[in-house]
Amino acid sequence: MKSKNLILSCIAVLLLLTLPQNASAKIYVSANSAILMEQESGRVIYEKDAHTQRRIASITKIMTAILAIESGKMNDMVTISENAVRTEGSSIYLKAGDKIPLEDLVYGLMLRSGNDAATAIAEYVGGSLDGFVYLMKQKAEEIGMKDTNFENPHGLDDHENHYSTAYDMALLTRYAMENDMYKKIAGTEKYRSEDPDGDWDRVWKNKNKLLTGLYEYTTGGKTGFTKLAKRTLVSTAEKDGVELIAVTLNDPDDWDDHINMYESAFKEYKMALVLEKGKVKTKDSFYKNKLYVKEDIAYPITAKEEEGLEVKYKLSKVKGDWKKQEQNVPDIVGNAEIYLDDKLVDSTAIYYEHTKVKKNKSFFDHFKSMFLAVMGVEKDG
Rank of each mutant, 00 (worst) to 15 (best):
K361H: 12
Q325T: 06
T348G: 08
Y46V: 05
D49R: 00
E238V: 09
L315A: 08
N149F: 01
T226M: 07
Y269F: 15
T18Q: 14
G213T: 08
K314I: 01
S264A: 15
V13M: 13
N152F: 08
G144A: 11
M77H: 11
I121H: 13
G381S: 12
Y182K: 05
G220H: 04
K209A: 08
L15D: 10
S58V: 03
N149H: 14
I7N: 07
Y215T: 06
L340H: 07
A303C: 02
N206Y: 02
E268S: 15
I56P: 02
G213L: 06
G97P: 06
K26V: 00
G126R: 12
E310F: 03
D130L: 01
D365F: 05
K48A: 04
K270N: 09
K205W: 04
T60D: 08
K324I: 11
T87R: 14
I35C: 01
E142D: 13
M63C: 10
H354I: 08
E216Q: 14
K324P: 01
K312Y: 06
D240N: 15
N161V: 00
M74A: 08
P153A: 02
I143H: 10
I350Q: 05
K359D: 11
L94V: 09
D257R: 00
A96I: 01
Y262V: 00
N83W: 05
A176C: 11
Y269R: 03
L129M: 14
K323V: 12
M375F: 10
K319G: 06
I11K: 14
H258M: 00
R202N: 12
D147T: 07
E178G: 08
D380S: 11
A118K: 12
G198W: 10
D342R: 07
Q53N: 13
I11G: 13
K139M: 07
N5V: 11
L16H: 07
T188L: 06
D197E: 15
V329Q: 02
N22S: 10
E40P: 03
M375S: 09
V374W: 13
I143A: 12
Y134F: 08
V78P: 09
E310I: 02
S30I: 00
A50W: 00
K359V: 09
A31S: 07
E88T: 07
E263M: 03
C10N: 14
K227P: 00
A303S: 14
K312P: 04
K184I: 07
L19C: 11
R231T: 06
M177R: 04
E151G: 06
G241Q: 10
P330K: 05
S369P: 00
N161A: 07
E40I: 04
P330D: 11
I45G: 01
V44M: 11
I350P: 04
T173I: 02
E88Q: 12
Y175H: 09
G278R: 13
N289K: 15
A176M: 08
T60S: 13
D342T: 05
I332Q: 14
A349G: 03
R54G: 04
S91P: 00
M261Y: 02
A373M: 10
